[in-house]
Nucleic acid binder design. Structure first.
Length: 641
RNA sequence: GCCCGCGUAGCUCAGUCGGUAGAGCACCUGCAUGGUAAGCAGGUGGUCAGCAGUUCAAAUCUGCUCGCGGGCUCCA
C-alpha cells in the first residue's frame, strides 16, 4: 500500500502501482468521470501516471484552468489527427490551447477553406467514436528526432533542436497519430465531447513575418453540448453588437476608401464624442488639471530629440514645409514639452497637471485596421504630469482614483490592474527605477487595490500601471494607462527651481483614461449593444404624434424639451404610430413621447422607454424635470419615469 | 505588410451554363388620420469597387489595383 496527500490535507491509501485515475475512482465515480488530468508534486501529469508513496496529488477537472487547457490541448490533437487523415501531406507546426479554444498551425500546399471545416469536424467525430487510447511516449532527444524525421514532421524537428539539451522529451500517440507534446492529455479521444471549428487564418511560423506563412485552424471545445452552444451564442451576440455594424445602423460614423483607417464621425457619433469630452473636462477641473492644445505637425528635429525618430519612425507620417522636414505627431508628449520648456518653472507650480485632447496619427499596417478599435488617427485624452520624486506616490493615487471614477461612471466595474516593472533594456539609474516602482506599488497598496505584477514588462523609459476593463461579453480591453517617464525629462533637459534656488529635474508621468476616444466609443457601443445611457444618447427623445391634428402639440413638446437642453426630434412623417415607434426603437432612442388627442388636451405626454415599453402618461413639465435629472446625474441605468 | 475570403441600389441580399440587372427595406408621390415594434398603391434609384485582358458577347472567366472581413505582429 501507498499513501498520497490530497489538497485538503487528508491522506488516501492506495494499492501499490495505483494511478491518478485510480485515486479519482477511489474518491468517487463522479470525480473519476470528471477528472481530466492530475497534478503530482506540482507537476501536471496524465490520469494514467503512477503514484508513489508520499505524493501530493490534485485532480484537474473542467473547473480548473489547467484542466480546461488539457481538454483544449487534446482537442487540438484530435483536430490535427483528423487533418492528417484528410491531408496526409500536412505538416504539423504547433497547436496550443488558447482562451476560449485552441488552434493548430499546419503547413500544407493546398489551401484549407471555411468550407472544409465541416469535413474536418466529421473526421474528428469519427475519431471520437473510435475512442482511441492516448499513450505517452518518453523519448530521448535522438529517439524523438528519429521518430519525427521518419514521419516527415520538419517543424517538430526544429522545435526539438531549439530545446535545451537536457530537456526531457515526450510525445503522445493516439492510433496512427503522434505529436510532440509535453502533455498531459486526456486518456482517450472519446473524452472530447463537444467541439466546433471556428475559422481558418494565416499565421507565421513562430510569429516571425520573415518565416513561412502557415494555415491556422481555430476551434473550441467544451465538456458538453450545452456549454458549447452557450459559447457559440456568445459569439453570435458579439457579432450582433459589433460596433462597426451598430455604427452604420445608428448612423454614428463611417469609413471610406478615401481614408482607410481614418474615421468619419457623423452628427450623431459626434454627439457621443462631445459628451465624452465635456464629461472629461468636468473631471479635469475636479482634479486640478490645465488643458493645452499643441500642433499636429512639428519639425522633424523635435522627433529626433524625443527619440521617436529612432524608436517609432515606422509608424509616423512625414511631410515637408518650405523644404524643411516635418512629422505628423504620433504622440502628444513632445508638443507638451515644447510648451513646458518655454518658461522657467518653480517648485511651487508642481505638481503641474497638463491635459490635451490630442489627435495623433500612426501608420498602422493595413491588415490590422479594425473599425474604431484600430485606426490610423485617434484622439487621446492625454495628460502629462510634472512633479517631484516625492510627489510621485500622491500623484499616482490621485490618478488611480480619477480613472476608477471615470470607468465606473461609464459602467465598467470589472477592472483588472497590472503593474509592469523595469525591462532588460531600460534607461535611467536603478535607484530611480526602484523609487518609481515603489511609488506605484505603494499607491496601489494605499488604495487597497489588487493588482497583477508583470516583472520586466514596463516601457524602456519607465514603469507603468495598465487598466483592463471587462465588457458585458467578458472580453478584456486595455484603455487607461499610467506611465512614469525618466527619458523625456532627460532628453529635453527639463528643470524646475527648487526651494533651495537650485535647478532640479522633474519626474514626468503620462496618463490616459479613455486611452483613445474613438476606441472607447467602440467598446462602449459593444458593451451597451448600442443602448447608450440617456446622457450619451445622440437623440434622447423622439416625439411621435399619432395624427396630423396634434402636430401643434408635438411641436410644442419638442420646443420645450429643446429649450430645456434635451436632444429631441419629432417624427412628422406620414406613417402610422406603430411604424414610428418601430423606427424609434430600432434607433435605440431612450425615450419616445407618444402624443395624441388625449395628451394634447391635457398637456401630457405618453412616455415609452426604449426596450421597456409604455410607461403611462405624465404632464410635460414632470417629464422634462425627470429626464433633466437623469441626464444631469449621468445615470448609468435607465430610470423609469 | 503577409495568408485566406469577400466587394451587385442608401442598407440586407438574389442573380443558373458568359447572353447586357432583380427582391425586401429605406427614400419620393398619392391614398389611408392610424393609440405603443412594419397600413395600401405607385415611383425614383446601378459605370455590378476600379483598370486591363479573353470572347461575337463579361456582374459572371483571367490578371492587376483599391477597399473590406478573419488572422499573424504591435498597440490606444
Amino acid at each position: 500500500m501507498i499513501s498520497v496527500k490530497l489538497p485538503d490535507g487528508s491522506a488516501m491509501e492506495l494499492a501499490e502501482g495505483a494511478t491518478v485515475l485510480d485515486l479519482a475512482q477511489e474518491i468517487g465515480p463522479g470525480l473519476a468521470k470528471a477528472a481530466l488530468a492530475g497534478v503530482v508534486n506540482g507537476r501536471e501529469v496524465d490520469l494514467a501516471a503512477p503514484l508513489d508513496d508520499g505524493d501530493e496529488v490534485r485532480l484537474l477537472t473542467w473547473r480548473d484552468p489547467e484542466g480546461v487547457e488539457v481538454y483544449r490541448h487534446s482537442s487540438a490533437h484530435l483536430m490535427a489527427q483528423a487533418i492528417k487523415r484528410l491531408w496526409p501531406k500536412a505538416q504539423l507546426a504547433i497547436g496550443p490551447p488558447i482562451e476560449d479554444g485552441f488552434y493548430y498551425d499546419i503547413d500544407l500546399d493546398t489551401a484549407i477553406s471555411a468550407e472544409d471545416l465541416p469535413r474536418i469536424e466529421e473526421e474528428m467525430r469519427r475519431i471520437v467514436e473510435e475512442d482511441i487510447a492516448v499513450r505517452r511516449l518518453d523519448l530521448s532527444r535522438e529517439e524523438a528526432i528519429a521518430l519525427f524525421r521518419e514521419r516527415g514532421e520538419g517543424y517538430k524537428i526544429e522545435l526539438i533542436q531549439d530545446m535545451p539539451e537536457d530537456e526531457a522529451l515526450s510525445a503522445y500517440e493516439q492510433g496512427e497519430f503522434v505529436d510532440l507534446c509535453r502533455g498531459p492529455h486526456l486518456p482517450s479521444t472519446g473524452r472530447v465531447a463537444a467541439f466546433k471549428l471556428i475559422a481558418v487564418a494565416g499565421a507565421y511560423w513562430r510569429g516571425d513575418s520573415s518565416r513561412k506563412m502557415l494555415q491556422r485552424i481555430y476551434g473550441t471545445s467544451f465538456p458538453d453540448r450545452k456549454e458549447l452552444k452557450r459559447h457559440l451564442q456568445l459569439l453570435e451576440e458579439a457579432k450582433r453588437r459589433d460596433h462597426r455594424r451598430l455604427g452604420k445602423e445608428l448612423d454614428l460614423f463611417s469609413f471610406h476608401e478615401e481614408g482607410p483607417g481614418f474615421p468619419f464621425f457623423h452628427p450623431k457619433g459626434q454627439v457621443i464624442f462631445n459628451e465624452m469630452l465635456e464629461y472629461m473636462r468636468e473631471r479635469l477641473r475636479e482634479w486640478n488639471y490645465v488643458e493645452i492644445q499643441t500642433p499636429l505637425i512639428l519639425n522633424e528635429a523635435l522627433w529626433h530629440r524625443s527619440g521617436h525618430w529612432d524608436n517609432y519612425r515606422e509608424n509616423m507620417y512625414f511631410t515637408e514645409i518650405d523644404e524643411a522636414p516635418y512629422a505628423v505627431k504620433p504622440m502628444n508628449c513632445p508638443g507638451c514639452l515644447v510648451w513646458f520648456r518655454e518658461g522657467l518653472h518653480s517648485y511651487r507650480e508642481l505638481p503641474l497637471r497638463v491635459a490635451e485632447f490630442g489627435k495623433v496619427h500612426r501608420h498602422e499596417l493595413s491588415g490590422v485596421l479594425h473599425g474604431l478599435f484600430r485606426v490610423r488617427m485617434f484622439t487621446q485624452d492625454d495628460a502629462h504630469i510634472f512633479c517631484t520624486p516625492d510627489q510621485l506616490e500622491d500623484e499616482i493615487v490621485g490618478m488611480i482614483e480619477m480613472i476608477q471614477r471615470v470607468l465606473g461612471d461609464f459602467g465598467f466595474d470589472d477592472v483588472r490592474i497590472e503593474l509592469s516593472t523595469k525591462p532588460e533594456k531600460a534607461i535611467g539609474a536603478q535607484e530611480i527605477w526602484d523609487r518609481a516602482e515603489a511609488a506605484l506599488a505603494a499607491a496601489l497598496g494605499r488604495l487597497g487595490i489588487d493588482f497583477q505584477l508583470n516583472p520586466g514588462d514596463g516601457a524602456f523609459y519607465g514603469p507603468k500601471i495598465d487598466f483592463h476593463i471587462r465588457d458585458c461579453l467578458r472580453r478584456s480591453w486595455q484603455c487607461s494607462t499610467i506611465q512614469v517617464d525618466f527619458s523625456m525629462p532627460e532628453r529635453f533637459d527639463l528643470e524646475y527651481v527648487g526651494p533651495d534656488g537650485q535647478r532640479h529635474r522633474p519626474v514626468m508621468i503620462h496618463r490616459a483614461i479613455y486611452g483613445s476616444l474613438e476606441r472607447f466609443i467602440g467598446i462602449l457601443i459593444e458593451h451597451t449593444a448600442g443602448n447608450l445611457p440617456t446622457w450619451l444618447a445622440p437623440e434622447q427623445v423622439r416625439v411621435l404624434p399619432i395624427t396630423d391634428t396634434v402636430r401643434g402639440w408635438a411641436e410644442t413638446v419638442r420646443d420645450h424639451l429643446a429649450a430645456a437642453g434635451v436632444r429631441v426630434d419629432v417624427d412628422l412623417s406620414d406613417e402610422t404610430i406603430k411604424k414610428k415607434i418601430r423606427a424609434a426603437e430600432l434607433q435605440k432612442i431612450p425615450f419616445m413621447l407618444i402624443v395624441g388627442g388625449k395628451e394634447a388636451e391635457s398637456g401630457q405626454v405618453a412616455v415609452r422607454r426604449h426596450g421597456a415599453g409604455d410607461q403611462g402618461a405624465v404632464p410635460l413639465d414632470e417629464f422634462i424635470a425627470q429626464i433633466r435629472e437623469e441626464i444631469r446625474t449621468r445615470a448609468r441605468e435607465p430610470q423609469t419615469v
